[in-house]
């Protein structure tokens, strides 16, 4: 057996891949959080719940309507996007003139309602979701076995992150979004319908979370608690990276996932706390976060 630093290379690579997958979800979720925070000045605590809903929509569609993974990958984000826009219109909109903390509290309440409702309906044991036929199996790379689906998750997440980055940095709509983040009143004065932009951004953020949820369904079991488990880690990721730059939050997400994976190999006891420890260190050394602009 080939070993590296005294550890079997198969196990090492397996954990690294798992870390990379976790990192992919951290990246997509923190990207959505950063987008929403930029324009709405709200930390979306319901982001985890929306991720969980994405996974559940996919599972429900498959179980009750026989709709396959690929169609769910489009339908679930659409549903979540509509759901998000409705939330923004009905509830979040009332809070923009208040302290941003109220937004956190409101979305926390929403997260409790959503999580509680799914727990009430489906319990906490978790539902299995099959890997789509096309991506079953894997490739033997010699030094490790690479499951196709897991590799696809990493690639697709990267593509989504890059596409979002391009859309924001290189398109007209992205330019408007960035301008509205800087100064919404001024953008409104130029005749741009900023409220619609805000609604759309929140919907897009929720859709992104739902998309991540569908991707996650075959990897983890579909479980009402999967959202709250991941969102707190994502908060730490966001504190570490700072929400100033999109590429920054993507990089931080993947990097921390890898570090978590490595910790699982070398010091498993700390694997669930390592990201929080890193957060503490970053706060000591660079309080604004690695890519943050302001404290």
């Amino acid at each position: 057996m080939i070993t590296l630093f005294g550890y079997p290379i198969q196990a090492l690579m397996g954990q690294l891949l798992l870390g990379l997958i976790n990192g992919a979800f951290y990246a997509v979720l923190s990207l959505g959080l950063a987008l929403i925070f930029g324009l709405l000045n709200i930390i979306n605590f319901a982001h985890g719940a929306q991720y969980m809903m994405g996974a559940f929509v996919a599972w429900l569609l498959l179980t009750y309507a026989g709709i396959n993974f690929w169609l769910s990958l489009i339908l679930a984000p659409l549903a979540l996007g509509l759901f998000g826009m409705a939330l923004e219109r009905l509830l979040l909109r009332r809070l923009y003139k208040l302290d941003p903390l109220y937004g956190l509290l409101l979305t926390f309440g929403l997260a409790l309602i959503i999580e509680g409702a799914f727990r009430q309906a489906y319990g906490v044991s978790g539902q299995a979701y099959q890997v789509p036929k096309l991506l079953q199996g894997g490739i033997n790379l010699g030094f490790m076995y690479l499951p196709l689906y897991r590799a696809a998750v990493v690639v697709v997440s990267l593509v989504i992150c890059l596409a979002t980055w391009l859309a924001i940095e290189k398109t007209k709509l992205g330019a408007l979004l960035r301008a509205a983040t800087e100064n919404p009143a001024l953008v409104q004065a130029f005749g741009v319908n900023v409220p619609v932009l805000v609604t759309g951004t929140y919907g897009f953020g929720a859709a992104l979370a739902g998309f991540a949820g569908v991707l996650a369904a075959p990897v983890y079991s579909v479980n009402p608690l999967m959202g709250s488990n991941i969102i707190i880690v994502v908060f730490a990721v966001v504190v570490i990276g700072g929400m100033g730059s999109i590429l920054g939050s993507v990089l931080t997400g993947f990097g921390l996932g890898l570090i978590e994976g490595l910790t699982k190999v070398f010091y498993p006891e700390a694997s669930s706390t390592v990201i929080f420890v890193i957060m503490a260190i970053v706060l000591l050394l660079k309080p604004a976060g690695l890519f943050g602009r302001t404290a």
Binding site: L91, R94, L95, Y102, L105, L106, F108, G109, L110, A111, L112, I113, I114, E115, G116, A117, R119, Q120
Partner: peptide
């Protein structure tokens, strides 16, 4: 009654904040 505590707490949050 299971998760109803969580659901109602969530509703109270939303009500109080709005």
């Amino acid at each position: 009654v299971g998760a109803w505590v969580t659901i109602i707490q969530g509703f109270i949050f939303v009500l109080v904040v709005t």
